[in-house]
Structure formats: structure tokens, C-alpha cells
Design a protein around this nucleic acid. Structure first.
Lengths: 246, 246
DNA sequence: GCAAAAGTGTTGGAAATACACCCATGT
DNA sequence: ACATGGGTGTATTTCCAACACTTTTGC
């Protein structure tokens, strides 16, 4: 697989002063954060997009992002964007990937760090003023501005994988939810259908759902029980995973 | 989980000119790449480290890294470092995570993008001149310079996870290997013991190993058969994964 | 009473685990 | 001949997938 390169470039050791000089003056690049914010509404997985304000991308949608301040922690910058754009804090936020092609941004060299966020869409009722913001059905996201299509695709794939290994999905639901809602969520994210009985069996056997002794209201059929997810119990379990599966 | 922030900061739309100005003049940050380079030798998982040249970290070990040039693609910068430091090209390289705490580097604000690389250690015989470089046993890596301990830990955990889901391990072995070597590799990376018969059964049932009709040489016992991994066949399989497991 | 979804068990097959003996080679 | 690891098969268990009927509620 690996081959030996023709030339072995000699390594020159740099002094702190030289590095400081480079850090201060030479190799400085604009850094941004872009957030892929997922929500769940009407049994559809949604993503929050904003109309690009650049002429070049007129009318096209883009992710929510901003430049990182020189003194700002990278994770904190992502939280800031979420606060500014959605008014929410304490949300699920995970760094996914850094995109650094030289020509990816028309304003010059900008390297961007992509984050994936999951929010309860009920907590974010868009005001009518914010008509530049819109929740898009994920199956209908295409032709985004910049390289945001690639960023979105990467984050969506990551979400599909992570949700099968970790209990992230509850961040998209109300605190109390029915098993039907939970299954609808999984089916929407994974774009698949699951057997209802096996799905229930699976979750009950994990023993991580707390029965709230409440039931759904205002449904035109037999109401389902409402559950909470037992985050504490989950946190205390450390699973050592040693299968081989590819 | 999510709570509504007290203030909803209004969003000001920026013109391209304003963004260009910021990109050119204001929010520019030094960016670096750090590589966690794994090798496998004498049945131990190893990582390539270099003695830090900064007085502040005198005597401590650090990862191999360098600043990214203003016009340089980020992935390309990581490949460059590998070429410069190991003389190898066409190696396995995967971006893992970006670390961006404001005070992580003593020379000023430097955000670093961590990569994980797997190389065949046989292809990288260290010359005696390079006494600042050393292959460390992964179980013996501690007290690294900068925040490199955290970066190393993150990459090692990622490797442990990825190797169970994808056939990465072969990058650490010679093209032709015995099943014993393969099992030793998995046991070293996952820090576990496996049943030899079940391990073989597992790999044979995947039907991704090619019998080379060669056997080990110069071993003081019955020689084992040598196999190659069938990368082409693996690539053609797309596995849709829809379990729930946490 | 009817429509619509909630709730519930069993069975068969596949995969993972545990486990013990003979074989080929070098010394 | 013996020491060392290579090579193999079977029984058990666990997990997953498939599948149908009764119950509760709103209308």
C-alpha cells in the first residue's frame, strides 16, 4: 500500500521565535464555523438553512456560520452561532469535520469547521421577521452555496451513524415522547421502516426508558404512553465494544 | 435538555466586501496539522513521536506537525508532513478532530487539525541521524507537550473504533501476512485477547482474504499460510447498517 | 360500531461463543 | 522426541427478524 517517496525532505527545527513570527505574521488563515442544525417536525427530519447573502450565490441556501474570532475558542464559536441564530443554548453540538480546500470560499482563504447540532424544533418557533431562515426537509436539500452541500452530506451521514450507536435522538424530541414518535424519528433519520414490535422490544430491553404514567392527548386513536429517556443510567454504563464487523 | 436563552441576538447580514475585509485583515488565525502516526512492530502498537524543540517543553515528546501554508489544502498539508517526516507517500490518512482552545500553543493562537495515519513500520527504518524521532509503545505514551496527550488519546480511541468497522489494520501489516500476525494486531490495538479459532472463522467467513500459496519462513514452529487482503472486493460491498446498539 | 393505532409473544435462523485435539515444522 | 504454534469442528447460547391478533380510544 505505502510506497517510498523519492526524496526525503530534511526537517529543519524551528526556534520558538521563528514559530512566533510565523504565527503572528505569515501563516494566518481565516477560520469559520458552519453548523448543520437538525430538527424533527411532522415526522420529517429537517435542517435549518439561511438564504445566502452573497450575490454569487443569489437565491441559494447555505448553512449557518460565521468567522471565528481570533481569541475565541472553536467550540465556543459554534455555541455562539447557535445562540445567535436560534436563541437556544445547552443544545447538543458535536464537531464533525474541517473543510480546507483553498478555493472553497469566494471571499478568500477560509477554512471551516463543521458542527452538527440537534435541537427540539418546538423550542425554535421562527418569528416572521426571520424570513431568511427556513427549515428544509433533509430529502430536499440540494445545490447549497459554497461547499455546503458536501458539509451537509458529511454531517447527515455522521448523524445516521451516530444515532445507531448513541442516544442522540432524544435531543430532537420533547422530554416526554411516545414510542411511536421515537420510531418515527429513527425511521426518518435512517430513511427506513422498522418492525414496531421489535423496535419496542429493543428499547424496553435496554431498560433506559422511564414510564411517566402519562399518555398522549388529543390523538384520534388510542393514546400511547409517554416515556422519558434515562440519561443518568445511560451515562453510568460503559460498554466495551470488541466485535469485528465490516 | 435545551433551554431558551434570555436574549436573542439580532443577526446582521454582511456584504461580500465586509467579509473579504475580515478574511483579509481581521480574523486570521495560524492553522497547523498534527499527525498521530501509528505503526506495528514486535506485536506492539507504536506511535511516532518527536522531541519537542521548545524550551518550555524540554525533553517532552510531541506529535509531528507543522503550520499550514496560506495557500495549502489542509489534507495536502497532512500528507506533506508525512512525506517530510517519514519519507512515505500513499499512506492511510484520516482527519480526526480539530483542537482550538485559545491558549493551547505557547507561540500564540494556533488551531490544529489532527490526523491519524497508519503506516507499515518496515517501510520506515529510522536512520541514525534522526535521533529526535522515536517509535513509542502506545501504552507508554504520557505527558506529551502542548495538548498532544489529548490529541493522541482522541486518535487512539478513534483508531480502536474504526478498526472494528473498517479494514484499516492491513495498512499496518506487510502486504502478505499470517492470520496470527493479523490477530496479534487486533489484540494489540484493542488491548484484548481473542479466541484463535473464532478469529479465523470470522475472517474466513468474510471471504476477503486471498491465499497467496506462500508460507511463513524462518519461524521456529509450523509455518502459517500467508494471505493478502482483497481490497477490491471489499470496496464493491456496500453494507447498509441499520441496527440500534447502545 | 368503526377506524386507527397501541400493545403484546413466539418461533426459526444466523451469528457469536466456548471449547480440545491433531498436525507440521525446527531444534 | 519434544516444543511451539498452525490448523480444524461442534455444541450452546444469544441475538435478530418475521409475523397476527386483541385492546383502547375518538369519532
Amino acid at each position: 500500500m505505502a510506497t517510498i517517496a523519492e526524496t526525503k525532505v530534511p526537517v529543519n527545527v524551528k526556534s520558538l521565535k521563528a514559530i512566533q513570527s510565523e504565527v503572528k505574521n505569515i501563516n494566518r488563515i481565516a477560520l469559520s464555523v458552519d453548523c448543520v442544525i437538525f430538527g424533527f417536525d411532522e415526522n420529517k427530519l429537517k435542517v435549518l438553512l439561511i438564504r445566502s447573502d452573497l450575490k454569487k450565490f443569489m437565491g441559494r441556501w447555505s448553512l449557518l456560520g460565521d468567522l471565528i474570532d481570533v481569541a475565541e475558542d472553536v467550540d465556543e464559536a459554534a455555541y455562539r452561532i447557535l445562540r445567535e441564530r436560534t436563541g437556544l443554548k445547552d443544545v447538543y453540538l458535536e464537531q464533525v469535520h474541517t473543510f480546507g480546500k483553498p478555493q472553497r470560499h469566494p471571499a478568500g482563504r477560509v477554512v471551516t469547521i463543521a458542527y452538527c447540532s440537534l435541537i427540539n424544533i418546538q423550542h425554535h418557533k421562527l418569528s416572521k421577521m426571520e424570513n431568511e431562515l427556513h427549515w428544509h426537509d433533509v430529502n430536499n436539500v440540494k445545490d447549497l452555496a459554497f461547499d455546503h452541500q458536501q458539509i451537509f452530506d458529511t454531517c447527515y451521514l455522521r448523524l445516521q451513524k451516530r444515532i445507531q450507536e448513541h442516544p442522540l435522538g432524544f435531543n430532537l424530541l420533547p422530554k416526554k415522547f411516545s414510542l411511536r414518535e421515537l420510531q418515527n424519528l429513527y425511521e426518518a433519520i435512517l430513511d427506513t421502516k422498522m418492525d414496531r414490535r421489535n423496535f419496542r422490544k429493543k428499547f424496553f430491553s435496554m431498560d433506559l426508558l422511564i414510564d411517566t404514567d402519562e399518555i398522549e392527548r388529543d390523538v384520534p386513536h388510542r393514546p400511547g404512553k409517554l416515556y422519558k429517556f434515562n440519561f443518568d443510567k445511560y451515562e453510568k454504563r460503559k460498554k466495551k465494544w470488541t466485535g469485528i464487523d465490516f
